[in-house]
């Protein structure tokens, strides 16, 4: 990934330059949106429910022991929207969508479909990369927007039903509402937008540089997913630093 960083930035720049032609490609964007959204929505909900749940399960008894279980709602509320939802959903999407993008573009490269486009004077960046980038940049924040309340709900359920925690549904959400602000949710959405761009550009770039037949495609998919996840976690740290600084 790191020795290709220049190429990746150039590709990103080319996508930005192609952006004005988006309107003509809107149908391709809709196709990609439907594909990403439908493929991931149920998975996102299940994942978020359990993340919220396990968060409550791990922290609840400890907080009860110290007699501060009343802060559970706010704590789970914040960690879900600022950290866990954007990061976990981005990792999920890297696995599902990033892999599909690199596999598709990789096979188009290997089977000369991209060469064929070039001979027809059709720019592969505009025709293939741009719609995918736009679709992932729109849909990942939307998925996170679903993920956050589902995660809260999962946390609240566990707090309510688990005998050791026994924080009622209402008091969980009352505390959550006192602590979590709209800005915290926006914080998570902004993160997920940046992650989406990272997944999209890495996966498309990896697809386009695929060489060497079916085995090359498999190698590209692995690289795209692993590199996306590594980059998500690195970016997450710096974005968090940045957002803490800005929100002060």
């Amino acid at each position: 990934m790191f020795h290709n960083i220049g190429e990746i930035l150039i590709l990103f720049w080319q996508v930005l330059l192609a952006l004005p032609q988006l309107w003509r490609l809107r149908h391709k964007v809709y196709d990609q949106l439907a594909y990403i959204g439908l493929a991931s929505l149920s998975m996102v909900c299940i994942l978020s429910l359990f993340i919220g749940g396990v968060l409550a399960l791990q922290t609840g008894p400890v907080l009860v022991e110290h007699g501060i279980s009343s802060v559970l709602g706010g704590m789970i509320g914040l960690s879900m929207c600022k950290e866990l939802a954007p990061v976990m959903i981005a990792i999920l999407v890297a696995g599902r969508i990033g892999s599909a993008m690199s596999a598709e573009l990789g096979s188009m490269q290997v089977y000369e479909e991209i060469d064929a486009l070039r001979t027809m004077n059709i720019d592969p960046v505009r025709f293939l990369v741009l719609p995918r980038m736009v679709a992932i940049a729109v849909s990942l924040p939307v998925l996170v927007l679903f993920s956050i309340p589902v995660g809260w709900f999962g946390g609240a359920m566990v707090c309510d039903f688990n005998q050791k925690i026994a924080v009622s549904f209402d008091s969980f959400f009352q505390n959550l509402r006192e602590v979590v602000e709209v800005g915290d949710v926006l914080n998570g959405l902004l993160k997920s937008f940046v992650f989406a761009l990272a997944i999209g550009i890495i996966s498309c770039h990896q697809g386009l540089i695929t060489r060497g037949g079916p085995r090359g495609i498999a190698r590209s998919v692995t690289k795209a997913v692993v590199n996306s996840i590594v980059l998500i976690l690195i970016l997450d740290y710096f974005l968090t630093r940045f957002l803490l600084y800005v929100q002060k």
Partner: peptide, 14 residues
């Protein structure tokens, strides 16, 4: 105007 017919056909499968 030039065109090439590729060895593999290279049709866009999607």
């Amino acid at each position: 105007r030039m065109a090439m017919v590729f060895q593999s056909g290279a049709l866009l499968n999607s």
